[in-house]
Design a protein around this nucleic acid. Sequence first.
DNA 1: GTTTAAATTAAACATTTGTTTAGTTTTGCC
DNA 2: GGCAAAACTAAACAAATGTTTAATTTAAAC
Lengths: 209, 209
Amino acid sequence: MEYNEKQVQIMETAETLFAEKGFNGTSVRDIADKAKVNLAMVSYYFGSKDKLLEALFTYRGEGIKLKLESMIENKEMSALEKMNWLIDHYIDKVMSQQCFSRIMAREQVMNHTGATAELIYQMKKRNQEMISRLIHEGQKKGEFKKNIDVPLMMATLIGTANNLVTTQYYYREINNLQSMPEEEFQKHIRKKLSQHLKKIFKAILTNEE
Amino acid sequence: MEYNEKQVQIMETAETLFAEKGFNGTSVRDIADKAKVNLAMVSYYFGSKDKLLEALFTYRGEGIKLKLESMIENKEMSALEKMNWLIDHYIDKVMSQQCFSRIMAREQVMNHTGATAELIYQMKKRNQEMISRLIHEGQKKGEFKKNIDVPLMMATLIGTANNLVTTQYYYREINNLQSMPEEEFQKHIRKKLSQHLKKIFKAILTNEE
DNA sequence: GTTTAAATTAAACATTTGTTTAGTTTTGCC
DNA sequence: GGCAAAACTAAACAAATGTTTAATTTAAAC
C-alpha cells in the first residue's frame, strides 16, 4: 500500500497520540488538529478511525518485523552469537519505534478480535517460529540445553523491553539521570538492556544446573 | 475506606470491563448495565468515572502490595531464598488479580498525571526499595554479585509476568493446552513462570562471568 | 479554456458520552 | 405512625464523539 504525504502525516500524528493517550482516549479531532488537516480528511483517506489504526499497523508493521533470514543461515556464527544478534535487533526495533511499540503493547492487552489483533498475532507467531528455529539449532549443536520454554523466553524478551520503554521516565529518576541529554539516555538504556537480556539468555540457554 | 455491597459490586464489574476494554473503552452505562444498578449510582457513590478508577485502585491497591516486612527480617533464610520467596509472592499477587494487573499495566503505559498514576508510582517505588534492600543484603553477605541493576531486574520480573498474563491465550495455543481445564492451566503457568524467573534471578544475582 | 476527477472544507448529523436533576422509594429511629 | 436521611430511579442535560454531506477549491488532462 502506498501512502501520500498527507496520509503519512495523519498516521504519524495518530501514532504519537495513540501512544500517549490510547486509541479510545484520542479523538479524531485531536488527530486532525495536531496534524493540521481538516477533520473530514481522516474519513476521506482511511474510511474510519478503526481503519486508520489498521493502516498504521500495516504501515509500521513492516518496519518492526524482525529481519533474520540472512543471519539465520549464516554458518560462521554460533547459535549464541545469533541469539545475541537477535536480541540487539529486537531492541533496535523497539527503541527506534517506541510509540508504535507502546500501541502494540496496549492493544495486546485487549484481547479483542479484529484486523489489528490478527496482525499482532501473526507477528508474534512469526517471531516465535524464528526463535524456535534458532534455539533448536543450538540444541542440535549441543550449545544449548534441552527443555527450553520458548514462549517464556519471548515473554521475558518482549516484556522486559516493553516495561523499560514504558517506564523509562522512572528509570531515569531512580538512577539520577535527569540531567543526561535525551539522546544519550536512549543510547544508555539501549546498551544496558542489551547487556541485561544477553546475560539472561546466555544463562537460561547454556548454564548447567 | 469502607465500601458497601453495592459499591463493591460496581467496582468489581468496572474492574473486569476496564481490563477487557480499557478505561476509555468502557462507558459508565456498560458498567451500570453489567452490575445491574442504575446509571446514576456510579456518580452517586463515586462522584465520577475517574473517581471510580481511583477508588478501584485504593480498593485493590492494598491487596496487591507486596507484604515482605516479616520475611525480610528473617535471619534463617539466605538472600537467595528470600528472593525466591519474593518472586513467588509477586506471581501470586499478579495471578490472583489478573484483571487489576492488566489495568495497572495499561495505565502505566499512559504517562498521564493524576491520582492513579501517583498510586502506581508509589507502589513501584516501594517495591523497588524492598528489592534493593534484599539485594544489598545479599551483596553484603557475599551471596550476590556487585553491580546489579535493580530497575532492570524489576523490568524483567514485572514485564515477564505481565506479558505472560496478557498473552496467556497465546501460550495455551502454542503449547497445545486448549483442552486443559482453566484452573489447572492457571496452576501450570504459575509454576512455569516461577521456575523461569527464579532461574533468571539466580543466574543474574549469583553466577560468575 | 474547458472539463473531469481529486482534494479540501465548514457545517451538519445522529449517537454516545459523563453527569445532574428532580422526584420517588426505602430505611432506620423516635 | 411520623419523620428525616439515605438509597434509588427515570429523565434530561450539555458536551464530545465518529461520520457524512454538500459545496468549494485545486490539479490534471485534453
